[in-house]
């Protein structure tokens, strides 16, 4: 069983990025991490392989030279090999372009049963790429998966989110499954994993290698600006006897906030 995980590197979620003139200053970001939803996918894929007793996880990442560090982290977790899609033409992709490049690379890799990215990147929160990869490849897809429970008889059984509960669906393989937060905290690498990651195959492909036309990668969606939400005003604390405070609260909600 071959599982391909299109993985994105995103600014460390623990840091605050700088937003200036309607843009995020990505050059200033020092630490990059595996997109958390992709990391949940890797964890669930590793567990699936452990349960099934066989299988291989292949990471595919679009990104600059430095993205290799993030790719190595996925290999240290236990992924088996990786493809780094590196080309100047890949620098300013919109979700459509990203899906086009990923789909071409996946087609070139050839053998796969599951394509299993996170359901969105936590940088732009677009949530389009995985679904569009399925379209490009003409594959069925299951979105907001919690995990793939089982792979048997050419089908996968996927547990996915539904409002207020779960849905369990069966889908023929190959298929695209996009991962939401999984039930298991992604593992941290072991020392053996970190050392072994350096020896695992990592192939670098450019636009010519994957066979995409650079002219087709022009973004069709233009981001006009990125903005922070307006700063929230400080709250007010009412003091006094409970009865008086309650009355005053109701009055303020009615007259000032106009919510009741």
């Amino acid at each position: 069983m071959n599982i391909i995980i299109p993985m994105k590197r995103v600014p460390d979620t623990a840091i605050q990025v700088t937003v200036k003139d309607g843009r995020v200053l990505l050059d200033e970001v020092e630490t990059w991490v595996i997109n958390p939803y992709d990391e949940y996918a890797i964890e669930e894929a590793l567990r699936l392989i452990e349960r099934q007793g066989e299988g291989k996880i292949i990471i595919v990442t679009i990104g600059p030279e430095a993205a290799q560090e993030t790719i190595r982290k996925a290999l240290a977790m236990g992924a088996h090999e990786a493809y780094h899609l590196l080309d100047d033409a890949f620098e300013q992709l919109d979700p459509l372009g990203r899906a086009r490049v990923l789909a071409a690379a996946i087609e070139k890799i050839g053998e796969y049963d599951l394509i299993w990215p996170g359901f969105k990147g936590v940088d732009n929160d677009e949530g389009q790429t995985g679904v569009m990869v399925a379209e490009f490849l003409g594959l069925p897809h299951v979105s907001t998966a919690i995990t793939v429970e089982e792979v048997a008889d050419g089908h996968a059984v996927v547990k996915a989110e539904a409002e207020g509960g779960y849905r369990r669906v069966r889908v023929p393989l190959p298929a695209v499954v996009t991962q939401t937060q999984g039930p298991n905290e992604p593992r941290y690498p072991t020392l053996r994993g970190i050392m072994g990651a350096k020896k695992k195959p990592l192939t670098v492909w450019n636009a010519d290698d994957v066979g995409v036309d650079r002219d087709e990668l022009e973004p069709v969606v233009e981001v006009l600006s990125v903005e922070r939400p307006p700063a929230r005003k400080a709250g007010r604390i009412l003091e006094g006897e409970p009865e008086d405070v309650a009355k005053e609260l109701v009055r303020l909600l009615h007259e000032e906030a106009k919510v009741i």
């Binding site: 560090e69 982290k73 240290a76 905290e185 941290y188 690498p189 020392l191």
Partner: peptide, 13 residues
């Protein structure tokens, strides 16, 4: 860097 990152991730738990 990779070693530090691995230990940090363990310690974060």
């Amino acid at each position: 860097a990779e070693l530090r990152d691995g230990v940090r991730r363990l310690c974060a738990r």
